[in-house]
Design a protein around this nucleic acid. Structure first.
Length: 500
RNA sequence: CGGGGCGUAGCGCAGUCUGGUAGCGCAACUGCUUUGGGAGCAGUGGGCCGGGGGUUCAAAUCCUCUCGCCCCGACCA
């Protein structure tokens, strides 16, 4: 409860018999939020910036995001989505057009009110009073309105439908409390916006993209979770239905990894997205929107990381294989580097993201650096290996016990399988973890007992319980939200959890 | 926005109560020895003590205002 006091006591591991030093301290068990921050730092992925709530994504973090976007972008195009770009600034009046939408976002909008600076009375620069905008702009918190406005002009006939757009961009929501990747004021995402002739098509689109997310998370990011409709209280402002993908973090809190919205005709009516139908009559289009963001990346860290730092899922890892030359003495180093580079070249030709760590550092330090960056496979090559034309490699997911020596040709033949196996190990770990942290409860009393006992995870309860006022009161007091109504239970149940 | 904690070298911290020339560990740099899971010795460099204003002969230290960070809560597709 009194967290502030507790933390201080729990963070130093009390100089106990440091059996095995972990690369990250505190450990997950000691202090999960602090562990998370340290992991991001240790991997050199991101840092806080001078701009409150906005982070700097460093090259290694960016490389991961880039991989996460490149793959999914192809899938979207394959599904018939066209990428486009819409303005960062949205006229306030646009945002105001959809009643629920304004209400949902007004509280967290950054507003642009001036177009010129001038010298202030105390030095420095101030917005020039003579340069106040007639109508302020908001920095987009999401783009439904400005894209809808364009759609209204672009769509005249049912022949213009469906219109399926997406943009990779940044948005801003003035968050009160931020954490690297998980919640930042400015964040990166893609936002898809589609318009259809019929309600069924729109619904199918929202569901289809949710399916893509699920597949992407499973096949590339190596995690699983529950997908399904959100309850009314968690719905996107202005949506008829929101589908979410909920994943369980190692501290027992849920994280929404993606959402997809069936917006019905709410936005088309307020923004005038109309078309002449096959019957010659005027009709409003049915629209959708969907997204995943840099938050998903943060979630991935919290799902796969261990006390030595992040573990990169191999299929999106910026560096899949790191080769460490183990140099004994200078005289051999030239020949050894040549050998390492040769192996690296072959791996690169075979399509694997490979690097040789040729930095002038002690070997153990390079090893830990690779560990903290979560590089799936670390290859060590010293005099021994070179003489036998072999390599020694270690899997990040299994640690030093997995150390194996193989001939170069055997390694080349096996590496794809090794990476796939790492992927599967991570995925299965997370599947088992999710299953082990999903509990069933049939009554408000059971739910109360669960949380009162200090347990965490998903609690799956019958949807009818949402009508129980005493449960709602309890949820409110304990910050327990409804996550989604899993498709697999066909609407009979809803998942409760504390969440990010 | 409420409650709590905290800003001192790149990082982690001591010094603040009781005002008197800015310290420790790690990292960095140099040299030698080392190198297959976090090395050893010797040496060197590095500070607007978050920022503004005040009190004082004198401020990291006291007063005041402010900015920022962390944790919890509220809020949050």
């Amino acid at each position: 409860m009194s967290n502030a006091a507790q933390q201080k006591d729990s963070s130093p591991p009390a100089a106990a018999p440091a059996a095995q030093r972990t690369a990250i301290s505190p450990t997950r068990a000691e202090n999960f939020p602090e562990w998370y921050q340290e992991v991001v730092k240790a991997a050199d992925m991101a840092e806080n910036s001078p701009v409150r709530g906005s982070m700097i994504i460093k090259p290694y973090g960016w490389a991961l995001w880039e991989n996460m976007t490149a793959i999914f972008d192809k899938w979207l195009k394959n599904y018939g989505i066209q990428n486009a770009y819409f303005p960062l600034l949205i006229p306030v009046s646009f945002l105001a057009k959809e009643a629920e939408h304004v209400e949902g976002f007004a509280k967290e909008c950054a507003v642009v009110t001036h177009h010129r600076l001038e010298k202030g009375p105390n030095g420095g620069l101030i917005p020039s009073p003579s340069a106040e905008l007639e109508e302020p702009y908001v920095v987009r918190p999401t783009s439904e309105t400005i894209i809808g406005d364009a759609m209204a002009r672009w769509i005249q006939s049912y022949r213009d439908l469906p219109l399926k757009l997406n943009q990779w961009n940044n948005v801003m929501r003035w968050e009160m409390r931020t954490r690297l990747f998980l919640r930042t004021s400015e964040f990166l995402w893609h936002e898809g916006h589609c318009a259809f002739e019929t309600a069924d098509e729109a619904r199918a689109d929202a569901l289809h993209v949710m399916g893509l997310y699920k597949k992407f998370f499973q096949d590339y990011l190596a995690f699983t979770g529950y997908d399904g409709p959100k309850t009314a209280e968690e719905r996107f402002p202005g949506a008829d239905e929101t589908f979410g993908f909920e994943a369980m973090m190692q501290d027992g809190k849920a994280l929404q990894a993606a959402t997809s919205h069936d917006l019905g005709q709410n936005f088309s009516k307020s923004l005038g997205i109309k078309f002449q139908g096959r019957d010659g009559k005027e009709a409003h289009a049915w629209t959708t929107s969907w997204a995943y963001s840099t938050r998903t990346l943060g979630g991935m860290i919290m799902m796969h990381g261990d006390d030595d730092g992040i573990i990169m899922p191999p299929r999106v890892a910026p560096i899949q294989i790191m080769i460490l030359p183990v140099v004994k003495n200078e005289s051999e180093s030239g020949e050894l580097m040549e050998f390492c580079n040769k192996v690296a070249e072959d791996l690169k030709k075979a399509g694997f993201a490979t690097q040789v760590d040729g930095r002038d550092m002690r070997t153990p330090d390079k090893m830990w650096s690779a560990v903290k960056k979560g590089i799936p496979v670390r290859v060590e090559i010293g005099q021994r290996e070179m003489e036998q034309n072999s390599v020694t490699f270690v899997r990040r997911d299994l640690g030093r016990e997995s150390k194996t020596t193989a001939t170069v040709s055997a390694f080349m033949a096996a590496i794809q399988g090794v990476l796939d196996d790492i992927h599967n190990t991570l995925l299965n770990r997370h599947k088992n973890f999710t299953a082990a942290n999903t509990f069933d409860a049939k009554s408000t009393t059971e739910i109360r007992d669960f949380y009162t006992a200090g347990k965490t995870g998903f609690v799956r309860v019958p949807v009818e319980l949402l009508n129980d006022q005493s449960l709602n009161q309890f949820r409110k007091e304990n910050a327990i939200s409804t996550r989604c109504m899993p498709f697999e239970d066909e609407g009979r149940s809803v998942l409760l959890a504390k969440s990010y």
